[in-house]
Design a protein around this nucleic acid. Structure first.
Lengths: 246, 246
DNA sequence: TATGTTCTCTTGATAGGACATACTGCCTTT
DNA sequence: AAAGGCAGTATGTCCTATCAAGAGAACATA
């Protein structure tokens, strides 16, 4: 036993101690220093090894358990989850996901307008009658292959948006630069078959399978910032996630 | 301000205090006692009102923030998220979800066998060569309408399974009764179009959209317990979830 | 030998305190 | 009147302590 994960923590760093521990254990798992199935030292010893208190150690392990990397069992111990599980679905944009994967996505803005919100949009974004929104549709390609067709509505009282920005970067990056701190999003994932409008844009045939996603995002002030309806080619995209028992 | 949510906590209950607080605030939100957008008292006052320590109060609020019901902002306070957001996707079976919704699902066992696992299954469940698994396909209906077609592989060294059980209750209930404590599951959601085998079973036409899900579940000992491939009628089912910024 | 009890190890829950840091609004100063 | 600084307030982080409860092994007893 006594898996010596000799990670060092920097008490002068602005990064919280528990988060440094999270990162340290994560990388130890990914580098294979902590192989799947191995048991960690108990919380008290680990805390002592790193000169931390047990609550701080526990908080770090809480996060790792929540993210699915560790499993705990009272009276027994804590061990690394056997297989490499996927990262949980996070609040990020498709653009972020792709660039993080090393791909180079391109975006084509198919339509762009600044219009008065219709009733369904007003309800989704909780806007008063007469409020205006940005409405646009984009086509995202990776390696020249079309992947997603995205239609979004964004409230206009946050930051100005124009077509050039949308072509150059992801929507979430634009909004974050505009001062939005996203807090949560609710989304629904389903399926449909490509219709005559979608098929040629996605370079597929009508009748082929598409993954659909509807999402509404909320910022830290409780405002509904953005709502959208996206479709993805089912042969190129799926949603992976890890569910953790509470 | 000073939203007096007069919930009472029972210190003699085996339910942890922080969880009683979670349930209390959840119900206060759902009953409208805490309307969307309202601010809660600060953590210290709330803890004092309930005769709890701040760590306990914080732990309760942590859960509510994680589940997307509350948003916190340093220096400002904590408020109820504006709109009713969906419950996050949890580690539960379709059967549980449906019965919790008041529906009465029925299950038809289309095939059932106890066979030697093939290579892909062995890999998914991390079984040695020659290990045996239960393999079965089920058709789930709600209100007489077919909803899902499910194919599963379950390791056989946990609890015996027979056809009659599968017809009467959900797979996860059977496994839980057999002593399995689920910890996490990784799943992938995508789309496909109904083929000639699926369409008549789901009482739809070949070429209509289906939502697909592949899932592998892990128990608290790190064993891969179950893997399966499910398809759902896209017109009757979709996955809803809430993503929370960490 | 089989069974039941106890002991130990580990995680789970709770308390209470101390200091850090971010946001808001007011008040002062220019 | 506008800009800057300061204080108040709330959450964020971290600590020391302590008891509870589950699991499993060791041990004693019938």
């Amino acid at each position: 036993m006594a898996n010596q994960l000799n990670l060092s923590i920097d008490r002068s760093s602005p990064v919280p101690l528990y988060h440094q521990v999270v990162q340290g254990i994560e990388s130890a798992i990914h580098t294979g220093l902590l192989p799947p199935g191995s048991r960690l030292d108990n919380e008290i010893d680990l805390a002592a090894q790193l000169n931390l208190s047990r609550p701080t150690m526990r908080k770090a392990m809480d996060e790792l358990v929540r993210s699915g990397l560790l499993v705990r069992k009272r009276g027994v111990g804590t061990q690394v989850v056997s297989s490499q599980v996927r990262r949980p679905l996070e609040l990020s944009s498709l653009y972020d996901d792709l660039t993080n994967n090393g791909s180079k996505p391109t975006t084509e803005v198919l339509s762009f307008s600044h219009i008065e919100a219709d009733a369904p949009t007003r309800e989704a974004l909780q806007l008063p009658a007469g409020a205006k929104v940005y409405h646009f549709t984009r086509l995202r390609k990776v390696g020249g292959k079309p992947l997603a067709l995205m239609e979004n509505w964004v409230r206009d009282d946050i930051t100005p948006i124009d077509e050039a920005q949308l072509a150059a970067q992801g929507l979430y990056a634009i909004l974050r630069n505009g001062g939005v701190n996203f807090r949560l999003a609710s989304q629904r994932i389903g399926a449909m078959v490509a219709n005559d409008y979608q098929a040629p844009l996605l370079e597929t045939e009508p009748g082929l399978a598409l993954v659909t996603m509807e999402r509404t995002a909320v910022d830290d002030t409780g405002r509904m910032v953005e709502t959208g309806h996206h479709v993805y080619r089912a042969d190129s995209y799926s949603f992976e996630m890890t569910l953790v028992q509470r």
